[in-house]
Design a protein around this nucleic acid. Structure first.
Ligand SMILES: [Mn+2]
Ligand SMILES: [Mn+2]
Ligand SMILES: [Zn+2]
Ligand SMILES: [Zn+2]
Lengths: 138, 138
DNA sequence: CAATTAATTTAAAACCATTCTAAACTACTT
DNA sequence: AAGTAGTTTAGAATGGTTTTAAATTAATTG
């Protein structure tokens, strides 16, 4: 029987299971894939009746990222996103409602890429497929 | 014989050839492909001995984008980039020096993309290939 | 279980890219 | 030359994020 799973997860990553971190981890790592920004996550914990500062949200998201529990995604919309899917993958980004949907890395093939400049190596490849509403004219 | 080419280019796009716009257009549309941010461009005009406000740089970059002389690229580094290459294309982004290099759209093939959600249509696909320095260990 | 120590949280200020405001200026028209 | 509409600008404002330093809390030790 597993007790205190969330606290254990945190301790496993050398993070003290504070009230704030336990609340955020419980929310983030409930099994469903999640894409959050500091602001969306702040709103979600507030809805659960928990109050914690935005600074702590930022601290915690960065700490979770550092220990490999989250992946940081920059360049989508105006804010930085954090992703519970830490596998290499890509995204649909629905620009009408700022919603992200995962695309498995295996769904995308990149061929004929030019050679990298001398002395440079590919660090990663980010693909964002922007979605908008289909409009039915005529 | 073509005279006043830069001013003509601006008039062609219904933009008054002001001192500021002429200086920026001359710098940007000299034939070489350019990737600039408001700050890098501001630095470049300053180096030419021309003083103009950052607000004007922003205004002008957006105006040039609106008339199709530039393309806006968000999500690379912390700032918004503007690109004189207005064709659909992708980028290498060298994270060690914030440098962008074009990748022609024809160099990238995307296959097996999942279906777009109901009622949504693909607006565009952005591919960023992050580059870092090759490190020679052992 | 104190008491001590070290990590964490927080409000508030600072930061930085960008946008806004509204007053001064300039290009174009008449 | 005058009028007017478009443009530039300094400076204020904005919004996401980071920093600061003081208060709080978790872990450790006796
Ligand atoms: Mn892990
Ligand atoms: Mn054009
Ligand atoms: Zn994802
Ligand atoms: Zn480009």
């Amino acid at each position: 029987m597993t007790t205190q799973t969330t606290a254990d997860l945190l301790r496993l990553h050398k993070l003290r299971p504070t009230r704030q971190r336990v609340a955020l981890a419980a929310l983030l790592f409930d099994g469903a894939p999640r894409h959050v920004t500091a602001e969306t996550l702040h709103g979600q914990v507030k809805d659960m009746g928990i109050t914690l500062s935005l600074a702590t949200i930022y601290n915690t998201l960065h700490q979770f990222t550092k220990v490999g529990l989250l992946k940081e995604i920059k360049g989508i919309g105006d804010a930085t996103w954090f992703d519970t899917n830490i596998d290499q993958h890509h995204h649909f980004f629905d620009i009408t409602n700022d919603h992200l949907i995962d695309i498995p890395a295996s769904s995308i093939t990149i061929s004929n890429l030019p050679d990298s400049p001398e002395g440079k190596v590919i660090e990663g490849i980010d693909v964002i497929v922007r979605l908008s509403d289909k409009h039915y004219s005529e």
